[in-house]
Design a protein around this nucleic acid. Structure first.
Length: 287
DNA sequence: ATTCCATGATCAG
DNA sequence: TGATCCTGGAATC
């Protein structure tokens, strides 16, 4: 379930269980054996997320002779990207025998974490980490980021706003669900060219992503339906299917819009499924 | 038992 | 645009 909120949540989950102590690192699957060996018995100093990229920063364990055991800067990082299929499973100790798909297991006396199916799991340097930050756009979940840089690119682009929202160089962390839902919440036609989006609409979209994705971190799932449109408020049945949260359009093709009743539409856009309401999102967003 | 599909992204052409 | 990588659960045969 990896959009940006998931990654920020995982950064916190890793930190809570492992930061400040030495960890045992292994790669039961073998594909990250070398990297795991290099951080084995080191201290997880801190964790960080930028968009869908997760960074685990390691430093050497303090020597007993050190008087002040101040946490140093990590001298190497594990860079994780879950891709579409990657998953992390946290559990207690002792850790059960790993299955053969576990790329990376971290474990200490009280917890373990198993990483499976990531598209990236690599040991990188500080410079390589910086290069990743440099090619990512602002992230609604990073407190120091704002949407200005994204706006500069969006407002000059003929590309559709739906495609721009998934471009991690422009804005980091938005995935297929938040894309569909935030465009719905602001009544923006997904096919609107970026240059035709109003500054006002963009500012509202950015602020909404900051809010929605923070909620996503808190609840560990994507909920985008405003209180007045929740099933209880409207007397409609709750979403039965899969992944949890209440949504307006994502994976609701051919169902009726909660607000206007029109049939939700779906289309292929850059190899991803796009969902929108033709009634609520008809050619608007230019403000 | 097999195929399909997914909240991602890169690379070749 | 299409092929490819990564995994597992649901749908389909």
């Amino acid at each position: 379930m990896p959009e940006g909120h998931t990654i920020h949540r995982l950064a916190a989950d890793y930190a809570e269980r492992f930061v400040g102590r030495t960890v045992r690192a292994t790669s039961p699957q073998g594909r990250f054996a070398g990297g795991a060996a290099l951080v084995d018995n080191q201290v997880l100093e801190r964790t960080e997320a930028h968009g869908k990229h997760l960074f685990l920063g390691f430093g050497p364990p303090p020597r007993t002779s050190d008087k002040l055991q101040s946490r140093g800067d990590p001298h190497r990082w594990i860079h994780v990207h879950l891709g579409l299929f990657g998953k992390l499973g946290f559990g207690g100790a002792p850790a059960p025998p790993p299955t053969d798909t576990v790329r990376l297991r971290l474990a200490n006396a009280t917890a373990h974490a198993d990483l499976r199916g990531p598209t990236t799991c690599a040991l990188i340097t500080d410079a390589e980490k910086q290069a990743i930050h440099d090619r990512l756009g602002p992230d609604p979940l990073r407190p120091d980021d704002d949407g200005t840089r994204a706006w500069q690119r969006i407002s000059r682009s003929r590309t559709t706003v739906a495609a721009l929202l998934l471009d991690q160089k422009i804005i980091a962390g938005v995935g297929n669900v938040y894309r569909a839902e935030v465009l719905f919440r602001h009544g923006v036609d997904p096919y609107l060219p970026g240059r035709d989006l109003s500054r006002t609409a963009w500012d509202a979209i950015w602020a909404d992503l900051v809010f929605l994705m923070a909620e996503g971190v808190r609840h560990n799932r994507i909920d985008t339906v405003r209180p007045e449109h929740l099933p209880e408020a409207m007397g409609r049945p709750p979403r039965v299917d899969d992944h949890g949260g209440e949504v307006y359009v994502y994976r609701r093709a051919n169902q009726h819009c909660h607000i206007c009743g029109a049939e939700i539409r779906t289309a292929d856009l850059a190899a991803r499924n796009l969902f929108w309401c033709p009634g609520c999102q008809a050619g608007r967003g230019g403000g």
